[in-house]
């Protein structure tokens, strides 16, 4: 009995599981680490993108030099890619849309320049982050108006799935950043938490917080209620719903 049959079965399953939605969430995660105070190496973050495009050869990359050599061997021709950007596939045969496929190819081809300065290297990622912000604003414009882009991304990174967010109740969305306080309330009978990530919308958008400190809980409740309804309307009308079978 050989393990090659198992490997083939796994590849078939993975081709059904890898989607564009996952790519968006990886870039959101990279963006969060990009601007965080802790040091995350860009090489490790680029590897996460490679997992989708060239997963077979990820174990051959041990250093930066290997990455550049690898890109020249297996990289795609720029001219062909820009002409045929409507269809772009991964090693597992997953089709990417026009938007994601084009910009990912440009990113990968731009990373093959070894002589690039560090600032240029980082600017390429910033272009990608701005494009994803535009994509989110095009699909979920009204829900971002309610809560703000910053909080919308925090909520998405916590839930990691559009389908799950559409199924969540508004009370859970209200509490999404405050799990520690919630379990403290359950165990040791501390007071109930009122808000999680939604607190940042109240803080950013309202100037006089002294008078509103009595109404924070009610504001958070109303924000969460309105956000949950608008997100569901926009999600079921967006093209992200094609992966939702239930």
């Amino acid at each position: 009995m050989k393990n090659e049959e198992f490997v083939k079965n796994c590849e078939k399953k993975l081709s059904n599981l890898v989607t564009e939605e996952k790519l968006i969430f990886t870039f959101l995660r990279i963006e969060r680490n990009f601007y965080a105070s802790k040091k995350y190496s860009l090489l490790d973050q680029i590897k996460e993108i490679f997992i989708y495009v060239y997963p077979e050869l990820i174990f051959e990359i041990k250093s930066k030099n290997d990455m550049f050599v690898f890109l020249k061997k297996y990289g795609i021709d720029k001219k062909k890619a820009l002409k045929d950007y409507k269809y772009v596939g991964t090693c597992f045969g997953v089709k990417l849309s026009e938007f994601m496929g084009r910009y990912i190819l440009l990113l990968i081809n731009s990373l093959s320049n070894r002589c690039m300065i560090k600032s240029e290297f980082r600017n390429k990622f910033k272009i990608m982050f701005n494009k994803i912000n535009l994509l989110l604003k095009s699909f979920f414009s009204k829900s971002i108006e309610i809560v703000g882009l910053k909080v919308f991304k925090l909520i998405l990174l916590k839930v990691k799935n559009f389908k799950k967010l559409s199924r969540l109740s508004s009370s859970k969305i209200q509490m999404l950043g405050a799990e520690k306080a919630l379990f403290r309330h359950i165990k040791m009978s501390y007071p109930v938490p009122k808000h999680g990530f939604i607190y940042f919308t109240i803080e950013d958008n309202i100037n006089n917080c002294n008078k509103i400190s009595n109404y924070e809980g009610k504001l958070a409740k109303k924000l969460a209620n309105s956000f949950s309804i608008t997100f569901r309307c926009e999600y079921f009308n967006s093209p992200m719903r094609k992966f939702d079978i239930d």
């Binding site: 050989k2 393990n3 490997v7 890898v18 997992i51 174990f59």
Partner: peptide
């Protein structure tokens, strides 16, 4: 999960002991 599964499958290509199941 798929993210870990991809790395597992890559491991099993070189190490023939491992039989991955996703």
């Amino acid at each position: 999960s798929y993210e870990m599964g991809i790395q597992l499958v890559g491991l099993s290509r070189t190490r023939k002991n491992i039989f991955p199941i996703i």
